[in-house]
């Protein structure tokens, strides 16, 4: 396998009021293509910041971030937005669906940024919803769906544009045990059958068990690594 994501000596600091907060201190990290990585650690350890940097949502203060051969730390805001649209699928803890749109319209949103025809967009949306088992709920709005179903719609939205990398920020954090397991099985299936590389931030050790590798961050540094052979 080759490295899909490479972080070299990445630092990140924020200024909050008059105070400068150092979040990451020289993180080096490689994520192979097709890998399912769980980023764990206590609150404030820098998990979400690392995820944001990998996903091109934020820029490092220092160091290099290379994803799919692109130095995304050098991209301007507009170019970075285009890059995200082409390369990254996002799954959030609270689903972050647009409440006024139906499930299928929500899934279609990333495809609006492509040149695909309307019929092709619709076809892909249907496939994505079938993959997550929600083809029969296409016309439902988020408030008409359960939390688990909403997260499935969010996953369909994340994969519909066929991105290289899925980034998940606490994808089971708002779900009960059964729904959390279903979501994790779905992510595992996407990793195994579709070959999607997944980087997941989680507090939940049960969710982390689905990953092929666990990285623990503490106070902005990589603290522990655990490679797992998942059945």
């Amino acid at each position: 396998m080759s490295a899909l994501v490479t972080l070299r000596n990445v630092t990140k600091s924020y200024t909050r009021g008059k105070q400068k907060v150092e979040v990451l201190h020289g993180v080096d990290l490689q994520i192979e293509s097709g890998e399912f990585l769980a980023l764990m650690g206590p609150s404030g350890s820098g998990k979400t910041t690392t995820l944001n940097l990998i996903a091109g949502l934020d820029q490092p203060t220092g160091g290099e971030v290379e994803v799919s051969g692109s130095r995304i730390d050098r991209l301007a805001r507009g170019a970075l937005a285009d890059w995200r649209a082409r390369n990254i699928g996002f799954i959030f803890q609270f689903y972050n669906l647009l409440p006024v749109l139906t499930a299928e319209a929500n899934v279609e949103v990333p495809l609006l940024l492509t040149d695909l025809s309307r019929s092709e967009r619709r076809r892909r949306v249907q496939i994505a919803l079938q993959l997550v088992g929600l083809a029969d709920r296409a016309k439902h709005k988020p408030n008409e769906l359960s939390g688990g179903q909403q997260q499935r719609v969010a996953i369909a939205r994340a994969i519909v544009a066929d991105p290289t990398l899925l980034v998940c920020d606490e994808p089971t954090g708002d779900l009960d045990r059964q729904n959390a397991e279903e979501i994790m099985n779905l992510l595992k299936a996407l990793n195994r059958t579709q070959g999607k590389t997944i980087v997941m931030v989680t507090h939940d050790p049960r969710a982390a068990e689905y990953a092929s590798r666990e990285l623990h961050l503490d106070k902005g540094k990589l603290a522990k690594e655990e490679v797992r052979h998942v059945a």
Partner: peptide, 12 residues
């Protein structure tokens, strides 16, 4: 919601 749109790749 607007932040989500930007996350998904909608430019400024």
């Amino acid at each position: 919601e607007l932040a989500v749109l930007k996350t998904l790749g909608f430019s400024d």
